[in-house]
Design a protein around this nucleic acid. Structure first.
Lengths: 240, 240
DNA sequence: GCGAAAACTATACGGCGTGAAGTTTCTGAA
DNA sequence: TTCAGAAACTTCACGCCGTATAGTTTTCGC
């Protein structure tokens, strides 16, 4: 009768307000870009004083950090879901599904994409640890899954460079090696190379640099994706 | 005795001051990131009032636009020079030289790179025309030269996608088609694909996303570059 | 019912871009 | 040589921002 018992009313309100602050910040970002995330604007929107937000986030950067974590997690969820939803025995289609999910998410959430991968907000400096690096790592592990799925056919084209385990961040390897024991260092390198490859096309498109040159970035991306899959020794799956 | 006659003393001072403002802005950016570009800081550094800058740039965005033009032109100069300095009859080495110049410039001028390709400064929105798009186009034309040089061997791997001239911006084609008459639409697409490909790796590295995962982004880049050259049907040249 | 803690407001400071108005300095012609 | 006018620059002002400090209200646990 008195609502949830496990968490007090106060705590519940606190959680709700925290969520509302973040939601409002994301709305502002969506309509006015990353610079629209100002404590005062958020407070105005919520009918409170700017300083009240300090009860929830110690500083504006902390809020931005929380937003990045949330947004990055959403991206990781999206690509992981696309990967999980694709047929396990069709590596080419899985990779294409992953890449399309990455690009589609970026195009659907351009402000979020800039928040994650660009200069998010004036003067913001990412903290060392936290949830955002975790999400980044999740994305990397996701790409490692791509590399692992394709390694059989890709080894010939990508296995010649002499990578060693000490070329990579231990924190990444802690996640990758147990998950993909058969993947050698060059395979991890392949994962990062794929990431960079796709990232570049998507970044240019999201930031508008590509749109100034071509009218069909979509075609460009899919051509390059098909090429990548072939390059990995796989037969490209059906488009779309 | 009275100095240059073609331009008055006043005009000369004006040009010098304009240059000093831009130089100071670039210094501030170099030491404090793109957000350090504030009219007040520049003025402080130069011993004037912030409003005095309004005599030279109508608004802060105009100053940023001018900086982007300058920096973008410097990048275009750097890659063009590397291209011109490499042997004309060794397309693989030319491409590698171009790509290395691109990456090296980005790593040497990370702040400039973010200024060009990132969210440069809070709220800044690029104007439609001007020198910056020209420099961007110059870079694109430079990559088109790569594609043109490699098209003979690359056509097999990159020529299947059905691109037409109407997939591209007319302004780009105005520059590219006269310079490379033999290059078909798919070749122009290849240029943009190469651009995106390299851009991604460099962007991740400059923004620190890659460094969180690998300790040798250099190795990664060169492995990918070698792969790219091979993929273009060329034999990679000597490293470094 | 009450004391403490949590949530929130009020006020203030320095920094930002920028507009309006005033002041100094230079220039070119009478 | 003088002097109007333009150019360069300063001063003052406004409203924005993040945020520190202090004070006020609301709510919870006993």
């Amino acid at each position: 009768m008195t609502g949830t018992r496990s968490t007090g009313r106060r705590e519940r309100l606190r959680i709700e307000t925290t969520a509302e602050i973040k939601r409002t910040a994301l709305e502002l970002m969506g309509s006015g870009g990353p610079d629209a995330i100002t404590l005062r604007a958020i407070a105005r929107e919520m009918g409170m004083t700017a300083n009240a937000i300090y009860g929830y986030f110690a500083t504006r950067d902390d809020l931005v950090t929380a937003l990045i974590s949330d947004v990055y997690t959403a991206l990781a969820d999206a690509v992981d879901a696309a990967w999980a939803a694709s047929a396990q025995d069709a590596p080419a289609e899985r990779i294409q599904a992953w890449a399309r999910a990455f690009r589609n998410w970026a195009l659907a959430n351009p402000e979020g994409f800039r928040l994650i991968y660009g200069d998010p907000v004036p003067g913001y400096q990412a903290p060392a640890g936290g949830a955002a690096p975790d999400a980044a790592r999740r994305v990397c592990v996701g790409i490692a899954a791509l590399a692992d799925a394709a390694w059989g056919g890709a080894e010939q084209a990508y296995g010649d460079a002499d990578f060693g385990w000490d070329d990579f961040d231990p924190g990444l390897l802690d996640k990758v090696r147990p998950a993909f024991p058969a993947l050698p260092p060059a395979g991890v390198a392949l994962a990062l190379r794929i990431w960079g490859h796709l990232h570049g096309l998507v970044t240019l498109e999201v930031y508008g640099h590509l749109r100034a040159q071509t009218l069909s970035p979509d075609k460009l991306f899919h051509a390059e994706l098909t090429h990548l899959v072939r390059s990995l020794g796989l037969a490209p799956g059906a488009p779309r």
